[in-house]
Simulated assay, not measured.
Amino acid sequence: MSMKRGLSVLLISLMLMPAVSSQGPGLEQPEWNIGWVLEEDTLYMDLDSDTYRYSMIIEFWVDNSRPIPLNVDLDAEFDIDAEMDYPSQVSVGANSNETFEIELTGSGINSDGGFLDAKSNRTLTLNAQEVLGEQNIGSNEIEQILKFSSLHQFTVSFSGDLVANDEIKSGTDEDLDVVITNSGNTIDAISQIDYRFSGCPQMNYAYGGYTNILSDTGADRVTDKPLEKGTAIPDVAYTTMNLEAPSGHPDKSCKFMVDVTSEGNGKTYSGIMEFTVEKIESISNENNEENGDKDTTSDSSDFAVEDNSLPAISSLLCILTVIFSAVIRRNDPK
């Protein structure tokens, strides 16, 4: 009886084996994965307006759906220089999900002292390698796009002959190039621009003829209009202004001032060109005074010769008188 039962169990087991083995390959094996906690297409590195540095924390998770613990090695790479602080290895328990952090710190200034472009994408890559013993047996990799926050800033400077000479004569004019440089990290535009003189209200200015707008891509644009409200400045622009000193302008120290307001941040940036106006009449007067001094010196010299010559003439007359008297006495009969 017991033998019959044993044979029945063995027969049933043999019948079930093909069914179990046929289901085996189709079963999904438990896996592990990684991902970002904040799923955004782009994250922004907020630059401090004073130091131009940033510091941010990016969180990621490791999910282990296996019935055994998971050990992974982590390696993060960023395509610009930055300081990164994160765990090099983590352990995640069976059937659990844990969150970890990458602290990213750096500067928005490049090695040349300028801003790193806010338009460019920067890529942070996180690679996780599964470790079993001392061997890596599997990996997962994720990427995150980052960009710098926008900083807007203008610099106003000057170039041209007036900068070198630093002087305008009354009754003449000089050209001056006003240079507006976009020293921020993204394209900006002028919301307002003002030109004015300080200390010399008689001075006049006029647009000098052309404006050249240079792009960081090399696509320059020349226009016959002065820099004005709404003018976009991707890199640098310069416009020629003509400064005129009226003929009656006195000798004076003057300032030509340019105020430019950024459309991006609403701040105003200023540049000051200092120069002097020299009155042409004062130059003529100086020449006349010099000529007058020469004439006076010449006259004084003539008088000096005449004064010095008088004693010589008197002595000669005295000698001649004595000789003449002696001759008369000798010829006088007594």
Results as ranks from 00 to 15, higher is better:
residue 248 G to S: 11
residue 307 D to A: 04
residue 137 I to H: 02
residue 273 M to C: 13
residue 61 W to C: 12
residue 320 L to M: 09
residue 285 N to L: 10
residue 221 R to S: 15
residue 258 V to N: 04
residue 13 S to C: 05
residue 81 D to N: 04
residue 159 S to M: 05
residue 206 A to H: 03
residue 109 I to G: 00
residue 321 T to K: 02
residue 249 H to F: 13
residue 134 E to K: 09
residue 286 E to A: 13
residue 168 I to H: 03
residue 201 P to D: 15
residue 150 S to K: 10
residue 106 G to M: 00
residue 327 V to M: 01
residue 249 H to M: 15
residue 167 E to V: 06
residue 265 N to Q: 05
residue 34 I to D: 02
residue 87 P to A: 07
residue 20 V to Y: 13
residue 68 I to M: 11
residue 51 T to Y: 12
residue 253 S to G: 14
residue 74 L to A: 10
residue 259 D to Y: 07
residue 232 A to I: 15
residue 88 S to D: 06
residue 334 K to Y: 12
residue 16 L to D: 02
residue 122 R to N: 14
residue 131 V to H: 05
residue 52 Y to R: 04
residue 306 E to H: 08
residue 204 N to E: 14
residue 28 E to I: 03
residue 125 T to Y: 01
residue 268 T to N: 06
residue 149 S to F: 07
residue 64 N to T: 04
residue 133 G to H: 00
residue 44 Y to C: 03
residue 208 G to I: 02
residue 130 E to K: 13
residue 115 F to Y: 08
residue 254 C to G: 05
residue 151 L to R: 11
residue 14 L to S: 01
residue 106 G to Q: 12
residue 76 A to Y: 07
residue 307 D to L: 15
residue 316 L to H: 08
residue 43 L to H: 11
residue 86 Y to A: 05
residue 315 S to W: 09
residue 316 L to G: 15
residue 153 Q to K: 11
residue 3 M to P: 01
residue 54 Y to I: 08
residue 299 D to R: 14
residue 139 S to G: 08
residue 169 K to S: 13
residue 108 G to V: 00
residue 51 T to Q: 15
residue 94 A to L: 02
residue 233 I to N: 00
residue 79 D to A: 00
residue 331 N to L: 09
residue 71 N to V: 13
residue 177 D to C: 05
residue 27 L to M: 06
residue 256 F to L: 03
residue 280 I to P: 02
residue 155 T to D: 15
residue 153 Q to H: 06
residue 50 D to S: 11
residue 168 I to Y: 08
residue 84 M to D: 06
residue 199 G to M: 00
residue 26 G to S: 15
residue 237 A to P: 05
residue 46 D to E: 10
residue 67 P to S: 10
residue 232 A to H: 12
residue 269 Y to D: 01
residue 51 T to V: 02
residue 125 T to D: 01
residue 139 S to T: 03
residue 47 L to Q: 01
residue 146 L to M: 10
residue 188 D to W: 08
residue 245 A to N: 01
residue 177 D to R: 07
residue 50 D to I: 14
residue 246 P to N: 01
residue 35 G to I: 05
residue 296 T to H: 01
residue 230 G to H: 04
residue 198 S to L: 12
residue 176 L to A: 10
residue 8 S to H: 07
residue 28 E to S: 11
residue 288 N to R: 12
residue 190 I to D: 01
residue 56 M to V: 15
residue 77 E to S: 11
residue 114 G to V: 12
residue 308 N to Y: 09
residue 167 E to R: 05
residue 214 L to K: 09
residue 258 V to W: 04
residue 57 I to L: 12
residue 55 S to H: 10
residue 72 V to M: 00
residue 111 S to W: 03
residue 125 T to L: 09
residue 184 G to I: 00
residue 249 H to A: 14
residue 255 K to D: 14
residue 185 N to F: 08
residue 85 D to W: 06
residue 147 K to V: 08
residue 253 S to A: 14
residue 104 L to N: 03
residue 153 Q to P: 09
residue 71 N to P: 08
residue 219 A to L: 14
residue 226 P to E: 03
residue 310 L to G: 01
residue 58 I to D: 06
residue 155 T to M: 12
residue 16 L to C: 05
residue 7 L to V: 12
